[in-house]
Design a protein around this nucleic acid. Structure first.
Lengths: 236, 236
DNA sequence: CAGGGTATCAACCAGAAGGTTGATAAAGGG
DNA sequence: CCCTTTATCAACCTTCTGGTTGATACCCTG
């Protein structure tokens, strides 16, 4: 299997700029910061927007250690894409949490919304959006917008990726809990083969292939072989 | 050597979906429609969001002729990217303009914001966002957000032109010298669409789609739609 | 102006694919 | 031992696709 450690699309650096500009231009935030994540999960390539240099320095020196959303601490395994910090840490905890009490609160920040971009489920970039105490609280409607923006950023990222992702096939099959035989059918369908050839390949009758296909269609909500292939290569 | 003036990125069809979802999810609009523009500047592949089918039909039958922003009428040379219709046509003119008086006003629309995507300064897609009379008027702040979204969409579009996936698509089409319409058919086929939907998208008859397909099969040596998709993304 | 390339559409047919119902059988878990 | 899951197959019908023939129309080029 290809070790795909070149998951950074060319131009990720400018992609990051564009994303930051998009987020700060559309959402009502007071400051923002973005970073990339290297394969040791270390944040690199920080870029800030209206963030006080002193605040950033303080973070880099000290408070990254207690950042509840720091990539090395925040579980990559949770598929979280958009998170509002005040939803993650309840108000009791916040009161005594050094990150809140000693860092963001003194800097006039009431809440942080963080967005994560992933490739092959691996964290590659993050965006932290700061809401100041002078601003209204983030409503669920605002979070919805953030999620919408995230979705598009993620889509855009995937479009510019190197080739099809190696585990697209597995993702697809796992997602819909396909059985071993069904996976084999999907594999052959993705080669553009007619049912007769698939039957020959699997050494079973045409009827059996059709039955498998019916089950696949049912499980995946797709309704033609053509769509399966399309899904496989155009996942987002 | 034929200059290949095809500037459609691969996956434009789903890109369009994502853009529509982004715009309607982030901006406060009541309905929306998007279209691609073929090389005769004809709008194709319409997709609507909360737009009454009857309203769309009325447009397609009649009012496209007087649409101040119709691609065939609206000057492509102006580099306009985001435009608010009420800024383009003054209130005096609006009063007697059939498009306002007889079409959008009776449908309860007070204003339309239109976004254009270009490649090499050539119009390739448009998005019309409808603001209903029940909604507050579009402020300059809202337009700024629309411009911000446009900027990112345009960026994302240009990124995808450099993407490996796009190159594969181009290679395939160039290799067999497919015509612009044939390429469009290939694009839609790769989305797993049935011929009927492709015909609807391209605003032509089923027979025409079949003919295009025959030519594609003949040129490429492939003999099914399923194989096309597979070939597109499985070239060595 | 003739001819090639492109785009359009119709009619027809054979075969493939999709959808449904129903049935059998082996494997595994509670 | 029953029940579920998985895999297998048949028959039937509808719809979609592929293949073919033939035709019109436009544009551009020689």
């Amino acid at each position: 299997m290809k070790t795909n450690n070149n998951i950074y699309p060319a131009g990720l650096y400018s992609f990051q700029d564009e994303c930051l500009s998009l987020l700060t231009g559309v959402l009502n935030v007071s400051k923002a910061v973005t970073y990339l994540v290297d394969n040791q999960r270390k944040p690199i390539c920080y870029k800030t927007w209206q963030l006080q240099p002193a605040m950033h320095r303080q973070y880099m020196d000290t408070f990254y250690k207690v950042d509840p959303l720091h990539p090395t601490q925040f579980v990559e395994q949770t598929g979280i894409t958009v998170v509002k910090m005040n939803d993650l840490v309840n108000s009791q905890e916040r009161y005594n949490h050094p990150y809140y009490r000693d860092f963001i609160s003194p800097w006039g920040v009431q809440d942080i919304v963080e967005l994560f971009l992933r490739v092959d489920n691996k964290l590659i970039a993050g965006f932290a959006l700061f809401i100041s105490k002078q601003q209204p609280e983030m409503r669920s409607e605002d979070i919805r917008k953030a999620q919408q923006l995230h979705q598009f950023m993620q889509f855009s990222l995937e479009q510019s990726l190197d080739a099809p992702k190696h585990n697209q096939f597995e993702n697809f099959c796992d997602q819909f809990q396909l059985t071993p035989k069904e996976r084999m059918v999907v594999e052959l369908v993705s080669q553009g083969l007619p049912n007769k050839t698939i039957a020959a390949g699997l050494d079973c009758s045409l009827a059996t292939v059709k039955t498998h296909l019916q089950h696949i269609f049912c499980k995946t909500g797709v309704n033609s072989k053509a769509e399966i292939t399309s899904q496989l290569y155009n996942q987002h």
